[in-house]
Amino acid sequence: TTLTVNTQTYTFTSEEEAREFARRYGAKTIRKTNGTWEVHG
């Protein structure tokens, strides 16, 4: 199964959650914005 996250942004309140998600789905960018963490595919 392949998950494609081209134009979607996922927002997390903790860096740990964001990094775990990025690691699991191979997202390329993690960015902190206004106190939340954004993961970009």
Rank of each mutant, 00 (worst) to 15 (best):
G26R: 05
K32I: 08
A22S: 02
E17W: 02
T1D: 13
A18N: 00
E16D: 09
T7C: 15
Q8S: 10
S14K: 04
H40I: 15
Y25K: 05
W37A: 01
Y10G: 02
T13Y: 12
R31A: 07
T9C: 15
G41Q: 10
V5E: 12
F12P: 00
R24K: 12
F21R: 00
A27E: 03
E16G: 05
E38A: 04
R24E: 05
S14P: 00
G26Q: 05
H40F: 14
T4N: 14
A22H: 02
E16A: 12
T9I: 15
K32R: 09
T11A: 05
G26E: 03
F12N: 00
R19G: 03
T1V: 09
A27D: 03
T4Y: 07
R23C: 15
V5Y: 08
G35F: 03
I30G: 01
W37F: 04
G35L: 04
G35K: 03
A18S: 01
Y10N: 03
T33G: 10
A22V: 03
T13D: 11
K32Q: 11
A27H: 13
T36I: 14
T4H: 13
T7E: 08
N34Q: 04
N6M: 13
T33R: 11
S14E: 04
K28S: 12
H40V: 15
K28G: 08
T2Q: 13
E15M: 05
T9F: 12
Q8A: 11
A22R: 01
T13I: 08
T7Y: 13
G26H: 08
G35Y: 02
L3N: 14
A18L: 01
F21I: 01
E15I: 05
I30M: 05
A27R: 05
R31K: 11
N34E: 06
R31L: 11
E15P: 02
T1P: 14
T13M: 09
R24D: 03
Q8R: 08
V39S: 01
E38G: 02
E38I: 12
V39W: 01
G26M: 04
T4Q: 12
N34Y: 02
V39P: 00
N6P: 13
T36C: 14
W37Y: 04
A18D: 00
H40P: 05
T7A: 09
W37T: 01
K28A: 11
E16Q: 10
T13H: 10
F21V: 02
A22N: 01
A27C: 15
V5D: 12
E20R: 08
R31I: 13
F12H: 00
E20A: 10
R31E: 08
E15V: 05
T13R: 07
V5Q: 13
E15H: 04
H40K: 11
T11R: 09
K28Q: 12
E15W: 12
Y10Q: 04
A22Q: 03
A22G: 03
F12D: 00
